[in-house]
Design a binder for these strands. Structure first.
Length: 862
RNA sequence: GCCGGGAUGGUGGAAUUGGUAGACGCGCCGGACUCAAAAUCCGGUGCCAGCAAUGGCGUGAGGGUUCAAGUCCCUCUCCCGGCACCA
């Protein structure tokens, strides 16, 4: 054995050994419990960044831990290979997205192999390959036939100069990222997944997900946004149509002073004919992007439509305003406005000098409430509401239900904020939608025997729309029904579709005759899913929806795909950019920028090293390709090895926490591994012995053994229950600090050293597998670490007969006493009072109260 | 704007159920070893006062509940993530 730890001599060897022995390739088996452990599917951006390192180290630690715990562990990886970045790269450097993607996969795979991860590589999938998307198209056809998929119009960002649809990310301050042109909202036909059919189940099943973080369940609940309210119809006036609104506050119905509609509402078209001067405003509303964040932060603007509708209770005329804050694809595209009891309406009414009518009296008398200055948005007692005066929310709700139903002007309604999922993308690099458009037969799904619809891999997009549109090889086909010439759909699917079921395909990636086979029933659901918190809503909600839809097709059993979820915090890094004349930005890697900071850590200046000129600091953001702030692990692995990189990211912070990247202290992780190596070396050098089972131990040896078993207990809990690896590592460090201070030179000491080192090596092995694999073979020659079991706590070693108890006076720490287990409560209290420092603070004062927390603390209140 | 989360020494973080704030690591300071350096080992290290024992202060800001608050409640500031076409 070498005296000095040298990662480069052991890591490659271990990786080769694992690969050749196929030790991580697993099959279904009934003699062990199964454990399906999986990180989120990565996008093959070209290079691994520290967020990936964190993600895969977490799943690897868990996978290796459960393997040692005796589970049949499946740990998988693949590629979310379709998507926008490949098209952007194609426009930039004229490489086909397919070639770029495959090259990236190759690069990243090599990087992953250097990390020593326990993936079953035989199950690797790439979503851009026909044998994967074949089954996605097959599923699309099934869902289409079942009415879970339908076609309707949706609104997209349209770049009038590049004549192309833009992603929200590509709209910057309302302008196209390449052309700089003001983006317009455009209505086009799209396919939708009817996720709202599952809204209620997606909401109620959140209760079953007790292995999920509470914050994720809460975010999903709010996203689904179930609310109970009323649909209220305002009849038309002067021969025009009326409109329907949804409100969760029907108690404020008598306070309505106007209604607001979206610029896309049918009444807006009618108003335009009546008042042509509205054209400018309606046009203005149609400018800018479609993202909710943009719409919600823009200045609220409106214009009177010239039309009125009739209030269903008072029969008074209510003016209709067109407002830019009302969304057509949201509810009914119209809202009733109650300025006195809604902040947004209050702001709007103040701006346009519209009347306000107070109809709710605050429940508690509140002198500070001034109706002219603020809206009162809580519920209370009704006033100025005619026959409803004096009623509470619940009373008026019930009363209105009767009255509006009688008048045929409204009904109680459960509303969801969740909208159906539009999946059509006017883009080339994605899974083709398997539909053929026939003049005679309409939209015809591609027959199963003709699937997959193969996406040609040789096209290069140029930024002016989807190149599939111009590719006759692709578009020209015949109708499967009538045989007439027909055109193939050229829209491709949202890449979230690809990532909504990949975890099921891992269970049977070689199934050529079906999407899924019986193996899925062995492995599904995923027992432990690990991925970034940024996926808390969209990806996880879509995957949950897919699982339920697949269940209803009889393809999977159970209701939920992910039993336990760990959402890792993002790894953030500083961003730096320069603005181009057209408004676009060039991003610089933090590695290429020299930063100076003030005493508080604020950036004073940042210089691009290559040209010595200033760059702009863009704040700390998640590592991503688009902001060029990804830090690649290669350098760290080359210098310190994969074990150090893994240990460092696990030790840096608990996994759920956001991590501002800094490699300060990485040498310390390497130093720790060297220290473990040296300890094992020193022990093994004097000969390995059987591990301690029984025999006389000195007092300090006994203490060490107690600490050893406390550590085993703590680490097991930290990994299995708390999923907090930094404290597990700290506990091993503490144990080894104590080990180094204990005299273990006698026979039982040597046996205890053996016991301790064996346990330490096994417990560290999920985190630093290479070095532990080697150390184990030295500690216990002729055996394999991967065949060992996780150490078991010896309850007898945990027995201690004395405990330290804190003594406080009035909540302030004044002394510590050692208390034997045998002492009674009264004896302990007496002991506490006798402590000389405690005496100083209670001397001459009457003791009002004594609070005793057994084995921990005594608080004397004087 | 809306939803979710975060803020603790010079620094990453610990404190698991309301019970010793700062574990463990980094950095820094001092020492040992060395011709010297690196590596390694030993000791110290929240701030203020004190030779020390010890005391006072201290978990983004302000208020509150409690014998006891980093932890619970209210108000606020700043930062991060998501907002349906980045993935």
């Amino acid at each position: 054995m070498q005296e000095i730890y040298n990662h480069s001599q052991i890591e490659k060897k271990c990786q080769t050994k694992w690969r050749e022995s196929k030790v991580f390739e697993v099959k279904e088996s009934d003699d062990k419990p199964k454990m399906y452990c999986m990180p989120m599917l990565p996008y093959p951006s070209g290079k691994l960044h520290m967020g990936h390192v964190r993600n895969y180290t977490i799943t690897d630690v868990l996978a290796r831990f459960y393997k040692l715990k005796g589970y049949n562990v499946l740990h998988t990886i693949g590629w979310d290979a379709f998507g926008l970045p490949a098209e952007n790269a194609a426009m930039k450097s004229k490489v086909a997205p397919a070639a770029w993607t495959y090259q990236n996969i190759e690069n990243m795979k090599a990087q992953l192999e250097n990390m020593g991860l326990s993936f079953d590589w035989s199950r690797e999938i790439a979503t851009c390959k026909p044998d994967y998307y074949h089954w996605q198209q097959w599923l699309f056809v099934q869902l289409y036939k079942n009415g879970v998929i339908y076609r309707k119009n949706g609104i997209v960002n349209w770049d009038p100069v590049d004549q192309t649809v833009l992603a929200n990310e590509q709209v910057i301050d309302g302008k196209g990222w390449r052309s700089g042109a003001t983006v317009e909202k455009k209505e086009i036909p799209m396919y939708y997944f009817a996720i709202t059919k599952y809204a209620e189940e997606l909401l109620s099943d959140l209760d079953k997900l007790d292995g999920w973080p509470e914050q994720v369940r809460l975010m999903q609940k709010n996203w689904i946004g179930k609310s109970r309210g009323m649909e209220v119809t305002f009849a038309g006036c002067d021969g025009y149509d009326g409109l329907t609104v949804f409100t969760t506050r029907p108690d404020t119905l008598m306070g309505v002073t106007y209604v607001a509609i979206s610029a896309e509402h049918p009444l807006a078209d009618a108003a335009l004919k009546l008042k042509p001067e509205l054209a400018d405003f309606i046009h203005e509303c149609k400018m800018g992007g479609v993202s909710e964040a943009e719409l919600a932060t823009q200045e609220k603007k409106g214009a009177f439509s010239g039309l009125y509708v009739t209030h269903p209770l008072t029969n008074e005329k209510v003016p209709v305003w067109i407002a830019n804050y009302v969304l057509m694809n949201y509810g009914t595209g119209a809202v009733m406005a109650v300025p006195s009891h809604d902040e947004r309406d209050f702001e709007f009414a103040t701006k346009y000098d519209l009347p306000k009518k107070v109809v709710i009296k605050p429940a508690k008398a509140d002198d500070s409430y001034q109706p002219d200055i603020t809206a009162y948005t809580d519920s209370g007692t009704l006033i100025n509401s005619g026959k409803y005066d004096g009623m509470s929310f619940d009373q008026v709700f019930a009363e209105l239900e009767k009255d509006l139903t009688t008048k045929n002007a409204g009904q109680v309604k459960i509303n969801y904020r969740l909208r159906d999922w539009g999946i059509s993308r006017q883009r080339y690099w994605g899974c083709p939608i398997p539909i053929i458009h026939c003049e005679h037969c309409g939209d015809v799904p591609v027959p199963e025997e003709n699937l997959p619809v193969i996406l040609p891999e040789d096209l290069i997009p140029d930024g002016s729309g989807n190149p599939l549109n111009k590719d006759k090889r692709f578009t020209d086909t015949s109708c499967p029904k009538c045989g007439a010439a027909a055109r193939r759909e050229t829209d491709t699917m949202d890449t979230f579709v690809d990532s909504s079921w990949y975890f099921l395909r891992y269970t049977c990636p070689d199934s050529h005759s079906a999407m899924l086979d019986e193996r899925v029933n062995y492995w599904a659901p995923v027992d432990q899913y690990v991925g970034g918190i940024e996926h808390a809503i969209l990806h996880l909600l879509y995957a949950r929806f897919f699982y339920k839809a697949l269940r209803d097709l009889g393809l999977v059993a159970g209701d939920e795909p992910f039993k336990n979820l760990l959402t890792q915090g993002m790894v953030l890094a500083e961003t730096f950019y320069r603005q181009n004349p057209n408004g676009s930005k060039d991003w610089f890697s933090p590695l290429d920028v020299e930063v100076s900071k003030d005493g508080k850590g604020n950036v004073i200046s940042a210089i691009y090293k290559a040209d010595g000129k200033e760059v702009i600091y863009g704040g700390i953001e998640k590592m991503s390709k688009s902001k060029n702030n990804g830090i690649d692990p290669d350098e760290i692995i080359a210098k310190y090895g994969a074990d150090t990189a893994r240990l460092f990211v696990m030790f840096a912070s608990p996994p759920e926490q956001t991590l501002d990247w800094s490699d300060t202290g990485i040498a310390g992780s390497n130093r720790f591994i060297s220290k473990v190596w040296r300890m094992v070396y020193e022990h093994v050098n004097t000969g390995v012995v059987p591990r301690y089972t029984a025999g006389e131990l000195s007092t300090e040896q006994k203490k060490l053994r107690t600490q050893l078993h406390q550590t085993i207990q703590k680490i097991t809990n930290d990994i299995e229950v708390r999923k907090q690896f930094n404290t597990a590592i700290a506990a091993v460090m503490e144990l080894l600090n104590a080990y180094a201070k204990t005299d273990l030179s006698d026979v039982s000491g040597r046996a205890l050293a053996q016991e301790t080192l064996e346990a330490v090596v096994i417990m560290l092995s999920p985190i630093t597998p290479h070095v532990c694999d080697v150390l184990w073979s030295l500690l216990v020659p002729e055996s394999e670490l991967l065949n060992q079991s996780w150490p078991i706590v010896d309850a007898a070693a945990l027995e201690v007969d004395e405990a330290e108890v804190i003594v406080q006076v009035n909540g302030k720490l004044r002394g510590k006493i050692m208390v034997a287990k045998s002492l009674s409560k009264v004896e302990i209290e007496e002991l506490a009072k006798q402590n000389p420092n405690v005496q100083k603070f209670i001397d001459g004062q009457a003791i009002k109260k004594m609070v005793v927390v057994p084995g921990k603390l005594i608080n004397i209140v004087v």
